[in-house]
Each structure stands twice: as structure tokens, then as C-alpha cells.
Amino acid sequence: MEKFIEIKDVEFSYMNEYDDPPTKNTVLRGVSLDIGRGEFVAVLGHNGSGKSTLAKLLNAINLPEKGEVLIDGMLTSDEEHLYDIRKRVGMVFQNPDNQIVATVVEEDVAFALENIGVEPAEIRRRVDEALKTVGMYEYREHAPHKLSGGQKQRIAIAGVLAMQPECIVMDEPTAMLDPIGRCEIMKTIKQLNAAGVTIILITHYMDEAAQAGRVVVMDSGRVIADDVPKKVFSQMEMLKSVGLDVPDVTELTHALIAEGCSLPDDIISEDECFERLYNLLKKGG
């Protein structure tokens, strides 16, 4: 797969200005990661593991202290490419309320395009297209604050999508949503990925990560696992030790294996769990 994002041995720290003297808080300690065009990568890690900081390196909001980040071959530290990079890598954040700028849905979706100076007719076309993609076209003239959390978050996605980015980085986009909202967002994400958009999804929900093509686990500023979901979630003990979880079905199969049942240790989906348990229980029945 063609490399789209290259993160090379990146270190990053924040200065804690409130302390006297100011102290240095190192968040990333040598992270290297390549992400290919069209991938769907989930990033897991407890709060403070550095995953949000990593996300902000991808569109030059944060610049690495050491090492470098390349987006489509462009260095993020290169000022000249700043808007080219931000156009290619869109970001969606946790709180939908705090990323919607305008008081009308379509005006908000148009915001990025207005900033990069797209012609009005083209803005109209792209705004409509983006709203249709996330299924919010009929709400284009609504006031955002009257929509549900899931709908607001889809507006935020449309606002990024209108830039026609190659990659969308989502920092816990479902954390503040109810189950219905979460479901809407996951559906949208998968649909975008199927259409070729590279997705980087930071999440605390293991069932969401299990739907990705690849899972990256972070702990104390380092990447400690990077593989397909099946391989990552089969390491249940390791995940628990860094404050993470596994899907319930994985936990169940591991508990049964510990009791001596012969089951594979890499079950992460409901369907697979059902089939295996059915075969196990049916034999004698």
C-alpha cells in the first residue's frame, strides 16, 4: 500500500507553565508509524497516553520536537505546505458543539471552503455533496444547536469532508454520543472509508476499534502494539495492563479458554463468537 502518512521517530512535549519553574511534560517518546492511503486505523490508549497529541501532529497543529512527520511527502514543519496539509488531513473532535462555527448547517459546512477561497458555485456543489454523504442534506437550513449529538457530529464531519480531504482524523468522535449517535457515526466512518478516505479513529470503545482494519495501541507516549484487530485483542492481559479493555466476546472466550475449553483466542466479533459457541454446545445436544 502506498504510504500517505509517515511519522518518523517523533518526540513531543508540553511545557507546564503553571509550575514554577516551568516543567517539561513529555507526551511522545519516539513514535514511528506509517499509514497507507485508504487505511482504517483505530488508535487506542488511556487518557494521557499521547494519542490526541499524535493526532494533532498530522495536520501541523503540533510540530514535532524531534523527528519528522510527512503527509503525502510534505513535511508538516514546512510552512509553505501548511494549508495543503490541512486540506488533505481533516480533523473531527470529541465535542460537536465546540467545532461548529456558523448558525446555519450549510454555512458551517461551507466554512473551510470559504477559508481556502473556493468559488461560490463550487462551494454550493461541494457543500450539498458533503451533506448528502453524511445524510444531513434535508437539515441544511437548520440551526445546529437544535440537532441531536449524532447529527451535530455528522455536520462536523461534513464540514471536513467538503474540503475533499484524503484522510480524516477523528479524536473520540463518539465519546459524547448516545448509542444511536455512535451507531450513526460508525456507519458514516465505514462508508467514507469504503469510498477511499483514509480514516484514523481515536476511541475508547473496543467494539469500534474491532471494526477497523488495523489497531495501534499507545501507552506513555509509545506505540506498544500495531496489528490487525484480531491479533491485538488476543493479547488481553497486555491491554488490561495498560488500562484498556477488550470486546466482551473476547473476554468471554478467554475466560472459557482458561477453564479448558478449546476455542481460538482471537475472537473479536459477535458473529464469530456465536458460531464457535454454537459448535461447542451443539455437539452433545
Binding site: V249, L252, Y278, K282
Partner: peptide, 27 residues
């Protein structure tokens, strides 16, 4: 999730009375 799995098992003909809602119970 475990409730859904066990509801499907029951629907597929595995017989049990219990309602499953936790991993511990399922095990």
C-alpha cells in the same frame, strides 16, 4: 454484546432458561 450472542444461541436451538447479561454469567 453477550446478551445478543446468547439470544442468538437460543434462537439457534441451544436450550437454556437463563438471561445472560454479563461475561461472568455467560462463562
Amino acid at each position: 454484546q453477550v446478551t445478543r450472542v446468547f439470544d442468538r444461541l437460543r434462537a439457534a436451538g441451544i436450550e437454556f432458561e437463563d438471561e445472560v447479561f454479563s461475561v461472568e454469567y455467560a462463562k
